[in-house]
Design a protein around this nucleic acid. Structure first.
Lengths: 226, 226
DNA sequence: AAATAAAAGTGTTCTTGTTAAACTATGTAT
DNA sequence: ATACATAGTTTAACAAGAACACTTTTATTT
């Protein structure tokens, strides 16, 4: 089998990230087959001959979440011969930032969200892939306000700041954050307010324009309503 | 053949960049087979079952240039079903920054350097791959002084500035450039001077430390002498 | 030996962005 | 009405980046 010219299997794996219950989470599926049967893994699948890599990643994503308004970006291709013990599988990893409100979740015992900072043991090199997704997300966040991809259509600046804090894993200064956030192109102030429980309501904002200045970034959006 | 679960062929292609004759150049090979027979293309090859992607890229690079002191980084994986007309080939593209002095060139009619800003018609999607390499190189340059990878072991600040100008494709202010360059960690001033023809000799510098702050960057170095 | 040519080398000002840091305002619940 | 919880707001110091022109050094020419 280790014929030197034989081609390999190639898959896409998608790190699906959201904010849920005030935590940054990743969607994992429990493996049903060996190797690593019973372990958690990033959802993935084979690439069909008729689809390009983005389409394959989007398909995998939709199978799990049914989202249609997402940030999806090719992350890196992992191809160590020893990354899987069963076969030589090269995987093109993607990561997606999605809104919890957009997800038709099939949260079950076998498909569920896990805190990114408290992951269970994972199959293959999936821990490395998730860690790299986090790193890339941080890089993106320093370039453009991608965090709104994790927020609801309408959000408060406090929610936006919290998203940044969860991604960067550090607390941010409120005044400096708001100054910078308000300067970001695309952010639009609404005339609505959050319906708070027992506190002052906050002004709601939304993001109109998408100006991600990375060619690596493939923004796939079917905006529903603004 | 368009069976939906069949796996695909997978290759690595390497965009090899250098500075030569005061121009930013890419190494291209002339295709000997259809499709695109006779057209220029980026060097590439199949990935062997025993090697990882970096190793495959390095092998392709060595076949063409015999360098052993290079900057090599995975760029992006291109997998459009229509990117090749002959077969479904997914390619993991890399780019390499090399020093002309390190290259054992096999500059021939079929393997030669081309100016990156004046490319001939290329096979497949190779123009897109080269353009993306240039974009990524610029991104890297804004983060860290990777340009020294294109310079000789010992170089003048003027040569370094010229490398930046060729990559960024714009002229830079000499005083600002030098101020910033001298602040970069790893740059070491030598006590030698360039042997000029008919002008004032310039102080020579070298780069000691490599502190590339990107996990995407895989620096493969077998330093010969400093 | 003097003049010339060619590139090396050098500082300051202004603008802009970044960091740091504490109090007031507004609504709900009791 | 009071207490509570969260929203919202400004300024000063500092660092980083952009704009900008002349002097110095060496080799070559006359």
């Amino acid at each position: 089998m280790f014929n030197e010219t034989k081609t390999h299997e190639i898959t896409v794996d998608v790190v699906i990230i959201t904010i849920k219950d005030d935590a940054l989470k990743v969607l994992l599926v429990k493996r049903t087959n060996e190797p690593f049967k019973g372990r958690w893994a990033i959802p993935g699948g084979f690439i069909r001959l008729s689809e390009n890599l983005d389409e394959a990643a989007l398909r995998v994503l939709k199978e799990k979440t049914n989202v249609d308004n997402i940030y999806l970006e090719q992350l890196y291709t992992f191809g160590d011969p020893l990354r899987r013990t069963d076969a030589r599988v090269i995987t093109c990893a993607y990561f997606a930032l999605i809104r919890e409100e957009d997800v038709d979740v099939f949260d079950s015992e076998d498909v569920t969200w896990h805190e990114i900072y408290n992951l269970p043991p994972l199959a293959f090199d999936h821990k490395e892939i998730i860690e790299y997704s986090l790193k890339r997300t941080r890089e993106r966040l320093e370039m453009c306000p991608v965090a709104y991809q994790l927020l609801n259509e309408k959000f408060t600046l406090t929610e936006m700041q919290r998203a940044y804090e969860l991604i960067m894993n550090k607390v941010l200064d409120k005044r400096n954050f708001r100054k910078k956030a308000l300067a970001s192109k695309g952010l639009r102030e609404l005339s609505e307010y959050s319906k708070a429980k027992s506190k002052r309501p906050a002004k709601l904002y939304t993001f109109d324009e998408i100006s991600l200045n990375s060619k690596r970034a493939h923004f796939i959006s079917n905006k529903k309503k603004v």
